[in-house]
Amino acid sequence: MSIQHFRVALIPFFAAFCLPVFAHPETLVKVKDAEDQLGARVGYIELDLNSGKILESFRPEERFPMMSTFKVLLCGAVLSRVDAGQEQLGRRIHYSQNDLVKYSPVTEKHLTDGMTVRELCSAAITMSDNTAANLLLTTIGGPKELTAFLHNMGDHVTRLDRWEPELNEAIPNDERDTTMPAAMATTLRKLLTGELLTLASRQQLIDWMEADKVAGPLLRSALPAGWFIADKSGASERGSRGIIAALGPDGKPSRIVVIYTTGSQATMDERNRQIAEIGASLIKHW
């Protein structure tokens, strides 16, 4: 058993032996400061991975655009179909130039040979490839079927209504393609630790998130040596930015963190910096 498999397999085991986890309101002070700095709403939640207890939250039940963070949920739905014998990670999917949409750094290189379902999930999560996400959405029946999958998990909040890139429109008060921090954190925890997916599929999902290559300026920039993080970021119109993550010290995840912001006029660099500073406060007061 690899170190990674050891880590995921023991998450339920550690729940019975973990020390009490204490919240630190200092992080919420930073979240509120980020709102002031960005001139935008910020949603935040910090969840204990083992118990599911909410440690801190700010606007946990307000809607925010999901942006590309939905791609983790999408690959969770794909893995659920794999577990049920309805899909194979090794199945190759062929597509054409007409299928390519904006920001497809991986799929645009494989027009001649296509990509496997496994490769598409990797591209969608680690590189946020939009065509990969659309191709995967097609395999499960489209955005409405992803919403149905989430409903069956008990998440009646999170919804996907459109495809890439239209889902990134982020119109104020538009509930399409949105979630709430509390709903996203709970759903992510179920995917990573619950019985919905097999152990192998849970491991695969967290491996893809751990290999994320496009979230460096966010929480990863504040991470001390030896800490673990598996994450997925997102960005969209109207100053929207977000990240969902499982992270913790000693090389294993122990908390879920979800951060969303929307409605800012700030630059992408400034949005990144504010999220990184929230992460730094979280780690300092861990």
Rank of each mutant, 00 (worst) to 15 (best):
F13S: 12
A15C: 14
I206H: 06
G142V: 02
Y44S: 01
T27A: 04
L247H: 01
R241H: 01
D250Q: 14
Q86S: 12
F17L: 10
G39A: 12
V82C: 11
E61I: 08
Q88P: 02
L192I: 13
H156N: 09
I283E: 00
G194A: 12
K102E: 03
K190R: 14
D83R: 02
P165H: 03
A40C: 10
L111H: 10
D207N: 14
S236R: 03
F228T: 04
I54S: 06
T267I: 07
Q203A: 11
I244L: 06
P12C: 14
L282R: 01
L47H: 00
T267H: 09
N168L: 00
D161G: 01
V29A: 15
A245S: 07
K213L: 11
A133V: 02
E166A: 10
N168M: 03
E87P: 03
T138H: 14
Q4S: 13
L150V: 09
L218Q: 01
T27P: 15
A215D: 04
E145V: 10
G90D: 14
E210Q: 15
H156C: 12
S281Q: 15
L219W: 01
S80N: 13
H156A: 11
P224Y: 02
I283F: 12
D33E: 15
I229V: 06
Q97W: 15
L55F: 07
A200R: 14
H94E: 10
Q86H: 14
Q265K: 12
M67I: 03
K213M: 12
K144V: 12
M127L: 11
V106S: 07
T158L: 02
L38N: 06
D99Q: 13
K53T: 13
L89P: 06
I283K: 03
I244E: 00
Y260G: 00
A183Y: 08
T179C: 02
A16Q: 13
F58Y: 15
H110E: 06
R189S: 10
T69N: 00
P65R: 03
V106A: 09
S96N: 15
R91T: 06
L199R: 14
R91H: 09
Q265N: 14
S57N: 07
L89D: 04
S254F: 07
I93T: 03
I243S: 01
S264V: 06
D113A: 11
S254R: 09
W163E: 06
R238N: 15
G234L: 00
G90P: 08
A246S: 07
G90H: 14
A280E: 15
P253Y: 07
M184R: 00
R7A: 12
V72I: 07
K53D: 13
S57I: 05
P105L: 06
S240F: 04
E145R: 12
F6T: 08
L218T: 03
S2V: 10
G226I: 00
V72A: 06
